[in-house]
Design a protein around this nucleic acid. Structure first.
Length: 1198
RNA sequence: GCUGAAGUGGUGGAAUUGGUAGACACGUUGGACUUAAAAUCCAAUGAACAUUGCGUUCGUGCGGGUUCAAGUCCCGCCUUCAGUACCA
């Protein structure tokens, strides 16, 4: 009897379906185990051999766990909402539900053919109203919740309302919008219902807000961040622009920290966790508030006050100041004796430049200026009231003394100064320095390096920052506006592609350094992103490379605040960084310098101190920032879950959960409406009647209009009366990830129509024990699902806040593309006008073209080369191509190039045409892999009949010497585009599902990317035939009840041990090898014992269930093999009495020796040394050392 | 740039706590069976040298190191793939 896999597989697939062999019950005495696959999107193309890889692995594990005595839940379903079905509907008008249904049928047929042990009675489909009812239900729960940071969990919105009623929102610590205004309990009570709703929206976990979204005009919808790859849409690669729209969002950012922490508690692949960590993007640092100084001084010159910044003549002033310091007046000298060295507890400087002036003495800290009127120095005489005014404008206080006062009674003068200093001390800093305060402008920045705060030499705002327009000085206005316009024009993609070009503009404004009080110029630059942090940075050029580059480019000072002498161990002390090529960004080896109270501290100490000082000033605090943004939840699509939302006076209202599901309405067209509304705007029945709680005709709506984004435009009449209780429903639908974020829980109780799942079911199954799927969902489905699970945990619905204990990413199976090589010609044609026709040409307007023209191009010839022919020519050079071919190509080239490069000119024959062949080149052409046999030979006749072969009817095929036409191979992603898709159905009919399953596992480690090569399947196929032959030969069934041999028992138990270890480690490829070894050994041993062959089947059955089931049945069992217990490993069968020792010399194995295992070290050494080959190796030398590891190895050194 | 993973025959890939590198397959070559092909079976197959056999030398991306012994551990590079990208 032969191995007829087709009959066997059909028979058992039918049996399993009819007997519901794999149906899981929600209670059992056995321990539970939940194995889950990522459910597929049923696309029209069906499955290729790459798709089932993960399903086969999980199926093996599920079957193995059943043998091990577990009650296994192994469900499957369909993620059946989505874009392709909708695109197809737009093109053909066919309802997406029909397309989806058809695709599901194909999928089911293909899946069934592979023999999975799914419990299909639990199937879910995201597009099924009975399923999406619960997706809508969760949405409502999210809407009715807010995130309380104090207890770090979501709570019902009613608790927030009662807090508002009792004490307003001042003490609420919630995850909420940024633009919250503080109100009192009294104010809350006085707000209108709409105002209250609007405020609550800012706290809800799903909220409606005007957000800047990624709008994809080609797809007519918004996309989430994870749906964009390199600035274009993941699907279709269409451009994406930023646009403001009213959209539903999910406040996933509230869970950022828990999503991050949770990663440490789950057994997921490290690379995937790393992707999620990066996506969440936690950074710890501080927020710092910089006050904006008054734009300009009114000195008419636009000169900005500033210490050491100076005006245009600052270098002259500097010279002058030096000179004056060297030649003080008698009075100045006397006063300086009493001011210097902090004699009055304040530091004074003399002859100091403030703005365009030199002042006699100044205490910068207190902004107190002392002027001594002299007679000797001319320059001192010109001072006037104007100067005082200007200085006072900049909040300096100027006090004056006469020379005589100083010289006459210096004590009195000093006392006056002391009094003045004390007064300025007692005045609050803000009053002394009302700088930007009069206008209240402040710039908040986020920094991870508060330790470098003294290195700030400028600030940079994103061009989109709201303060830019306000602070820009009239002088800088034109430049700034031009810059903003230029940046806005650049698409997101350009901006990303071009990170090297430094650009920016100076606003003319200054901010005040929180500690040094020095003015800091404010710039704008597109290296600062509006979307991250606050859209503004404090720029520390010596400590950040981008700041450094920016400063270098615009020649902004780069003060150094690092003690490089201590860092680099050099004797120089703090060399100026301007001379260095890059910023010093190493924070682990930092010693801060030139930074006041931070001097001498390392990174950690300095950060702590800086935050402490900032807090003392009230100008900053420690802060943690996350990159994770809230997820946009609205899509302008038809084929998705409708929102259970209607609008009253523009405010969203939830439909009562008892009225769910809100089913998708029928529409005539699946495109956006003419007015730009989402497709649901086409529905005629899409309004909500609050009286009947039903969806009703739009005709019952009164005067309600939507704007382009689907939001309701409120009208004056839109109160309850005029609506008659009928309101418009939300026109957007939910995104693809809505349905996939809770399906794993629904499988536990899929038919429950009163609850999302019963508490019994969730408490029995708990969570997914093993989840297998692709890593491409790292920042989408896998993050959103974790978010929803945590939310449901907060609600007390689920016992774990992580939905999947263990996750494995299966690698992709790549396709092996087949290539043929067409000879292409690169050519150049010169057109020259002949003299005779020049006259004619002159009379036309085409003279300029006609005189001379060149046309370059590339031309695909009719010659196709096989792989080796091509290689040969590429090695020898293109000159070796047959001359006849070149001639023919040349002729063809003459035919296809026009006689005139200029159209519509009637001088066709007047042109002289000269054709140059510039180059020859092979261009690879993909051919369908199904036309290529296992020896890489292309079936040329079949190729010509193939749809794509039509273009190659005339083609000449230049084959190998032996007459075969070999194709080249290239490993690429398996896709229709590369014609390298292999259909599992064909594999199943040619080799059987068991072969397919074994081969997919045998290809390599599950997580790894590996190429598919159909030819290789013969290996596992002949293994199955060999396996069959252990049970059957030409005379029929040959299993006997004879006692098994020792060798056979050893083979069996060795196999049990290895297979069990391999499955537990998900090393499926090696266990297939183990089976092969076992079958090869048992065949050689001529084993026929039932005692061996029966347990062997159970070992193999998770991998090749059909053949195992058939042979199990032949052995006389009536129950399915899936219920059999996994064989028990018995060590005693593996005990050996001897060991074949490898004998090494200096670590290199030279020969082996069979020795008893119970030999002592000395006996082993004696035996080895006595061996003839040992003497030969040593050639008379004495061994220096003999290493003996009993049971392992002998190594002789010498 | 940053982060992560990985480099082993012609190919996919094995190799336990450092202990016989290349298991198991594919492919290739030779042979048996056959009119022939397919299928099946047998043998060889890391490279080089030697071939009368016994063999010898070199070999896990590169260069060092630790060790009796390194694909495996340590240091420094190179390459490939993936993720991410002005994240302050």
């Amino acid at each position: 009897m032969k191995y007829h896999f087709n009959e066997i597989e059909a028979k058992w697939q039918k049996y399993w379906a009819e007997n519901q062999t794999f149906k899981a019950e929600n209670n059992s005495e056995k321990p539970k185990y939940y194995v889950l696959d990522m459910f597929p999107y049923p696309s029209g193309a069906g499955l290729h051999v790459g798709h089932p890889l993960g399903y086969i692995a999980s199926d093996i594990y599920a079957r193995y766990k059943r043998h091990k005595g577990f009650n296994v839940l192994h469900p499957q379903g369909y993620d059946s909402f989505g874009l392709p079905a909708e695109q197809y509907a737009i093109q053909t008008g066919q309802h997406p539900a029909i397309t989806t249904e058809e695709n599901i049928k194909t999928y089911r047929r293909q899946l069934d053919q592979i023999g999975f042990s799914f419990d299909w009675s639990r199937e879910v489909r995201t597009s099924d109203p009975n399923y999406y009812k619960w997706t809508q239900w969760i949405f409502i729960q999210l809407f009715n919740s807010w995130y309380n940071n104090d207890v770090d969990k979501a709570e019902n919105i009613s608790t927030l309302i009662s807090v508002f009623e009792k004490g307003g929102n001042a003490n609420v610590n919630a995850a909420c919008d940024d633009n919250i205004t503080i109100f009192t309990a009294e104010a809350w009570k006085n707000y209108s219902s709409e105002q209250q709703q609007e405020i609550l929206l800012k706290y809800r976990l799903t909220y409606l807000a005007e957000t800047e979204v990624n709008w994809c005009p080609a797809l007519g919808t918004v996309l989430a961040n994870d749906e964009i790859v390199n600035g274009v849409s993941e699907r279709g690669g269409h451009p994406v622009i930023r646009k403001k729209m009213m959209q539903w969002s999910m406040r996933i950012s509230a869970y950022a920290e828990r999503l991050l922490q949770g990663l440490d508690t789950i057994d997921w692949p490290e690379p995937l966790k790393e992707i999620q960590r990066n996506w969440i993007g936690k950074s710890v640092g501080a927020s710092v508030t910089f006050k904006v100084l008054s734009p300009t001084l009114s000195n008419g010159k636009g000169v900005v006050p500033g210490y050491m910044t100076g005006g245009n003549n600052s270098h002259l002033l500097l010279e002058r100041a030096k000179e004056m310091r060297a030649n003080p007046t008698e009075a100045e000298a006397a006063l300086w004796q009493n001011l210097k060295g902090k004699k009055l507890d304040s530091k004074f400087r003399r002859q100091h430049i403030i703005g365009d002036y030199i002042v006699d003495f100044v205490c910068l800290d207190k902004k107190l200026i002392i002027e001594v009127d002299g007679k000797i120095h001319d320059s001192q005489i010109e001072e006037d009231a104007n100067r005082t005014e200007i200085l006072e404008n900049d909040f300096y206080k100027v006090i004056r003394f006469k020379n005589e006062e100083v010289l006459g009674n210096i004590d009195e003068v000093l006392e006056k100064i002391s009094k003045e200093l004390a007064e300025r001390e007692s005045i609050k800093r803000e009053q002394v320095l009302p700088s930007g305060k009069d206008l209240g402008w402040e710039i908040d920045v986020f920094t991870t390096r508060p330790d470098t705060i003294f290195g700030v030499s400028f600030m940079t705002l994103a061009p989109e920052h709201e303060l830019v327009a306000k602070i820009t000085t009239p002088e800088q206005k034109a430049e700034v506006e031009a810059y903003i316009e230029a940046t806005a024009k650049r698409s997101e993609r350009d901006r990303m592609a071009d990170v090297k070009t430094i650009s920016g503009a100076f606003t003319g404004a200054y901010a005040e350094h929180p500690f040094s009080k020095k003015p800091i110029p404010i710039w704008i630059g597109d290296y600062v992103l509006a979307g991250y942090g606050t859209g503004a940075v404090m720029s520390v050029p010596c400590g950040d490379q981008r700041d450094y580059d920016f400063a270098k480019y615009f020649e902004i000072p780069i003060p150094n605040i690092f003690d490089l002498s201590k860092i680099k161990g050099s004797s120089e002390s703090s060399p100026p960084l301007e001379e260095l090529e890059e910023a010093f960004t190493d924070k682990d080896n930092t010693i801060i310098a030139n930074s006041g109270f931070l001097n001498g501290l390392n990174y950690k100490q300095a950060v702590k101190r800086a935050i402490y000082e900032l807090e003392k000033l009230g100008q900053g605090k420690g802060k943690t920032n996350y990159r994770l943004r809230d997820a946009v939840f609205s899509r302008q699509r038809y084929w998705g879950e409708p929102f259970p939302v209607y609008y009253v006076n523009g405010m969203p209202q939830m439909i009562d959960t008892e009225h769910l599901p809100i089913t998708l309405p029928e529409v005539e067209k699946y495109l956006p409406t003419e007015t730009g509304e989402p497709p649901l705007g086409n529905a005629t029945h899409w309004a909500w009647c609050t009286k009947t709680n039903k969806i009703v005709s739009n005709e019952m709506l009164k005067q309600v209009q939507h704007d382009k984004n689907g939001s309701v435009i409120p009208t004056e009449q839109s109160d309850e009366e005029s609506h008659n209780g009928v309101y418009p429903l939300e026109l957007n639908t939910m995104p693809g990830w809505a349905g996939s974020s809770q399906y794993f829980n629904r499988y536990m109780d899929p038919h429950n129509d009163t609850e999302i799942f019963s508490q019994e079911a969730i408490n029995y199954w708990q969570q997914v024990d093993l989840y297998i799927g692709g890593s491409e969902h790292a920042t989408g489905h896998l993050l959103y699902s974790r978010f929803w699970q945590k939310f449901m945990y907060d609600l007390g619905l689920v016992p774990h806040d992580e939905f999947a204990k263990k996750l494995i990413n299966q690698g992709m199976i790549l396709g092996t593309s087949a290539l043929i090589y067409r000879l292409d010609v690169e050519f150049s044609v010169d057109y020259k006008i002949s003299e005779a026709s020049e006259i004619i040409a002159q009379s036309t307007s085409h003279l300029a073209y006609a005189k001379k023209a060149t046309q370059d191009g590339r031309f695909g010839s009719n010659y196709v080369f096989s792989k080796n022919r091509k290689n040969e020519i590429e090695q020898k050079g293109y000159g070796n191509i047959d001359k006849v071919i070149i001639e023919k190509i040349s002729k063809k080239l003459h035919e296809i190039t026009p006689n005139s490069p200029v159209e519509n000119i009637e001088l066709i024959n007047q042109f002289e045409k000269k054709i140059h062949i510039v180059g020859l080149i092979f261009s690879p052409i993909h051919v369908d892999v199904s036309l290529v046999n296992s020896s890489d030979e292309l079936d040329i006749e079949a190729f010509k009949l193939h749809p794509m072969g039509k273009d190659y009817k005339e083609v000449e095929f230049l084959s190998e010497e032996d007459g075969t036409f070999k194709v080249g191979r290239e490993i690429e992603k398996m896709s229709k585009r590369w014609l390298n898709v292999v259909n599992p159905e064909i594999i199943c009919s040619d080799y059987g599902a068991d072969s397919l399953r074994l081969y997919e596992m045998f290809l390599g480690p599950l997580e790894q990317y590996k190429p598919w090569n159909t030819a290789g399947i013969t290996g596992v196929y002949s293994f199955l035939k060999k396996l069959w032959k252990l049970y059957f030969d030409d005379n029929g069934f040959k299993v006997t009840e004879t006692e098994p041999s020792k060798e056979a028992l050893k083979t069996l138990h060795k196999t049990i041990k290895k297979v069990e270890e391999d499955i537990e480690n998900f090393s499926f490829n090696t266990s297939v090898s183990t089976f092969m070894i076992a079958v090869n050994e048992l065949t050689a041993q001529k084993c026929t014992s039932r005692e061996i062959l029966e347990p062997l089947l159970i070992l193999i059955s998770p991998y090749a269930p059909h053949i195992a089931e058939e042979l199990w049945n032949q052995l006389g069992h009536k129950e399915s093999i899936s219920t059999a217990a996994f064989p028990k490993f018995d060590e005693s069968h593996l005990v050996e009495s001897t060991k074949n020792y490898p004998i090494s010399f200096n670590g290199k194995m030279r020969f082996t020796m069979e020795l008893p295992l119970d030999l002592s070290k000395d006996d082993i050494e004696a035996a080895v040394m006595a061996h003839e080959k040992t003497k030969e190796q040593l050639q008379g030398r004495e061994p220096k050392k003999v290493i003996i590891v009993p049971g392992k190895i002998v190594n002789i050194v010498g």
